[in-house]
Write a protein that binds this DNA or RNA. Structure first.
Lengths: 362, 362
DNA sequence: TAGCGGACTGTGTTCGTACACAGCCATTAT
DNA sequence: ATAATGGCTGTGTACGAACACAGTCCGCTA
């Protein structure tokens, strides 16, 4: 008994040859209305489902995907999306998809353009980009469209109005601010104060930081029941221990009811380290990302919550989306926000395991 | 230029035929030492990696996996693992794996045995079981081993010492208790009281409930800094509104400092509903599972945290593990604890989306 | 030295789909 | 009437790996 319905079976059932069935399936034309009707009826009746293995094997086309993102030796954060891309890459190789990585200096717009140019000189079918430089990214995307190259965005979202712009995979900054607010609101008692603190240089230019700030403030303005006060601060010179200490002392004496701080980036560990040195333990701390330094203070119970933005999945999902588009012609959701995992000392272990335990092969 | 290294290339490079290469790869013997050496060298040199597509197509073997779990019309919880299994099933069909589901009455050990017997009468290569009845499960597993059927466990873990016992996928009950304790500890102020509450009938027989209890208590005994008091209670008749109200009133008056309750199962919504009716709003509530009733009270901010045990993933991962074993001969980790996601009103959306956005095809 | 068995290796077919190509037929143009 | 055109359909081969089978070679024994 033949388990599965094959093209051959359809052909037999419809009284045509498999060539005709193939033409119908792929809409290649040159099929009479009558034959087409019979083939479709047979497919319906026998519940035909194509065998992807055989299809891919026979199609025998190889696709090339280029990735374009900041050098991760410079900023270690990017190692995570990259790792996700690599995992996905080994996974999609059997589908005839080849992934080639290009890197640029994360602080030099020019270098983005250089790497982009390099990609444009090769032959590729799609690119996965972290478009962190607005202007340069726009130029690159324009070029992609001119060369009929599909593209997806990770981490940073730039609005593009083109059929070649396939998707964005990344964080939901606003909602992560809301989430942090909720956590602090839960942990603080009435009349106490929560603070949002930026430890980055150019906050005003960083849309995602402002989004987080907005989410944080919106939450508290909508939840006044506990009468939590909120505050906002910025400090850049985290490397300068004396300055940092002075800043903290000043802040604490100015806000005696301060009990919780939300740091808007992965740099929370700087604060945790400084507080540890100063032996301050009455502050509840919330921040981002499972990088080693943060994990250290999470274990030490100096940090209470780390919001995990699933950076590996950004890369993983990005590649998989592109391959779904190229190989299976399946379109993916335009905006894909990754889960905001609430990570604590007590459940961190699971999030540190291999990101993708769902994958199928080595 | 042929992109990829094929068996034919190896053969050419080693000066043998592809038949010989095939024998070397599969250790089928009947190859001279010299030929074997040359083939292995060529594989090494050309970086040969087998084409899974072609391999599966040519192998043309179909595997059958049976699943055995409680009827989900009876207890809706089981719908989730089932859904995960179904997702995985459509995904592995192209690999020649067929999944057939068997159900039993979740309250009748005899019915487990009946369904198990049914499976044993068919021809299958592996089973995925929720072995919730200890004795009957042991009997079934014995039978599987006798018939050389591989098996994996989901949701409930029974220790088996056999090569046919492949893995367990499920929750880490102890750790989920610890996690709940940490959340309440974070939310409560000094001197306040946290309670662990069972709403199930036979707590003493339910190992996982006792584990949760242990985790909860261990956390607090190790974290005395806030001087949180803990308490334990049990109540069964959640359907009886008057009784339930009396129980709650009694508990509240007995523990005036009670501010947080951890319900050890998905039945938290019963408590939330009752508290809403009584207009009690000063209690922080932590429980399990994203079922509709719980989600309602999470949205209403009556429930603060739901710990998500990823029930869909149990099924999904279970099927994928079996297929990895059967098709790719790749062994999976013996004990696989799924992430304990901390779900709040502010991040619930992500967890309600399609569980597995990592999957590759429709 | 013929006969036999076992070690070793190459050939050919198979899986299900994709697609090139050739062939057929009816219609239109010359 | 014959040639050319175009619509439509079937045949055959390729994709890469798996495996059955047949074939070759060698050493041993009768």
């Amino acid at each position: 008994m033949s388990q599965r319905v094959r093209i051959k079976d359809i052909a037999l059932h419809a009284g045509v040859s498999k060539g005709t069935v193939d033409r119908v399936i792929h809409g290649r034309g040159n099929v009479s209305a009558e034959a087409k009707r019979r083939v479709l009826a047979a497919m319906e009746e026998l519940h035909y489902e194509p065998n992807q293995m055989a299809s891919i094997l026979a199609y025998n086309k190889t696709w090339t995907i280029a990735t374009l993102m900041p050098n991760f030796e410079q900023d270690h954060f990017w190692a995570q999306p990259h790792q996700g891309m690599e995992q996905a890459a080994t996974m999609v190789r059997d589908y005839g998809v080849k992934v080639i990585h290009y890197f640029f200096d994360g602080e030099q717009p020019n270098d983005f353009s250089r790497a982009a140019q390099q990609i444009l000189q090769t032959e590729c079918d799609a690119v996965l980009v972290a478009p962190i430089f607005l202007q340069e990214a726009h130029a690159f995307f324009d070029a992609c469209e001119a060369k009929s190259i599909w593209y997806g965005q990770v981490n940073t979202y730039i609005e593009r109005n083109s059929p070649y712009a396939l998707f964005y995979v990344g964080q939901d900054s606003y909602q992560s601010g809301v989430l942090a607010a909720k956590l602090l609101n839960f942990g603080l008692a009435e009349q106490e104060t929560a603070m949002i603190l930026h430890l980055e240089k150019s906050v005003i230019n960083a849309a995602h930081l402002l989004e987080k700030e907005k989410g944080f403030e919106d939450y508290f303005s909508q939840h006044q029941t506990n009468d939590i006060h909120t505050n906002k601060a910025s400090f850049t010179e985290v490397q300068d221990e004396r300055q940092f200490q002075k800043f903290i002392e000043y802040t604490l004496s100015n806000h005696t009811s301060l009990r919780g701080i939300f740091v808007t980036t992965s740099r929370l560990f700087h604060l945790a380290r400084q507080l540890e040195r100063m032996n301050v333990r009455h502050l509840k701390l919330v921040g981002f990302d499972l990088i080693a330094e943060n994990l250290h203070y999470l274990q030490a119970e100096q940090i209470d919550f780390l919001i995990n933005q699933n950076p590996q999945r950004q890369g993983y999902t990005g590649i998989l989306n592109l391959m779904n588009h190229l190989v299976f012609k399946k379109q993916s959701k335009a905006i894909q926000h990754l889960p905001l995992d609430v990570v604590m000392r007590e459940n961190v272990a699971h999030y540190l395991e291999d990101v993708v335990d769902l994958q199928m092969k080595l």
